[in-house]
Amino acid sequence: MRAAGTNDNSAGVRHLIDALTAAAGKLPADPPMPLPKLAHDTAGDPHFFDLDTLADARLVALAAELTGREEPSRPDRVRALLEDVGVVADRLTATVLLHHVAVVGDGPVDRRLREAVTPVSLHLIDLTRTPPRLDPTQALTVVENPSVLEAALARGSEMALACTSGQLRAVNQALLQLAVDQGLALRYAGDLDGPGLSIAHTVARLYGADLVAMDTATLHDAAATPSAVPLGPLPAEGIGPQLARELCAGGRVVFQEHNAVLDRLLPTSNLHGTSIPLAHPPIGLPTSLPGAGTI
């Protein structure tokens, strides 16, 4: 904490130190306790150690210190570290949507996925406590917006889909890592805007996903009916110069709800879990991302 710049004696810093000291005396917790319970019992406030706060970062540093491990940066690994010291976070609140995802196991989550006719909402605990055995012969297409799954229902598409509902959280990264570990081919599609391109870059870099409908061809097809939303700033990395230039020239976001995107993602001829030939190769992002698959 001193190295990070905590060098004053304010009441807030003293309260944080007192809470961490009390937490250290309770860890590892057996039986495990929810993160809000730990915060309540050590700081008097169930939200004190809420994730993505300074207090949470210090708690993660404490857990790393207690276990002799490096501090993780990925949300799923942060939660895994906390679980190793008996603290559970977001297992019942964070969810990911799966639709027509084929499984080969017989666990409780496998049965739910096998029997479902509509998208299935899985919690982080489902993916970590009783993870499904995904069929490795299928390609899993991960999308940013739930509206794509609605469109899949409307179009009768049977392709394997998962939805992150925006930014990558622990539950989303747990699913992506599970898919990689079980040998699935991953495809990712997001909005053509700053946040969407940043997420796509992360998914391609960390999990080797092929990017779909995030290229200049999609942008050209969408240009006839542009959205009303200004583009905003683009990420500094992970976007090809040609796509960046053409996006800036158009000045509008291309959302996944656009037919130019949906027609690429949900071809009506697709059968359950099979790979899909792309009408255009995804040329928007560079191919040299560390750890990425072919883009």
Rank of each mutant, 00 (worst) to 15 (best):
V120P: 03
L262T: 05
I295A: 15
V60S: 05
A236M: 01
L51A: 09
A4E: 06
S157V: 09
E115C: 08
P282G: 15
P136H: 05
S198M: 05
L153A: 15
L20A: 06
S73C: 03
A217T: 12
E158K: 14
A249P: 01
R187K: 01
R14W: 05
L140W: 10
P290K: 02
A23I: 02
P131E: 02
V143N: 02
T141D: 04
S121L: 08
A139T: 15
R112L: 10
G208M: 00
L153R: 11
L59A: 09
A22Y: 00
G194I: 06
S73F: 05
T216D: 00
P72M: 00
A222S: 01
V13I: 11
D45N: 13
L122P: 07
A39K: 04
G12T: 12
D52T: 06
K37W: 09
L92N: 11
G238N: 01
R114M: 02
V254A: 02
G196F: 10
A39P: 10
A223C: 01
V87W: 08
R79K: 05
S227C: 02
T268F: 00
D221N: 09
V109K: 09
A63E: 04
L149E: 06
A102Y: 02
E71A: 07
A57H: 08
T225Q: 12
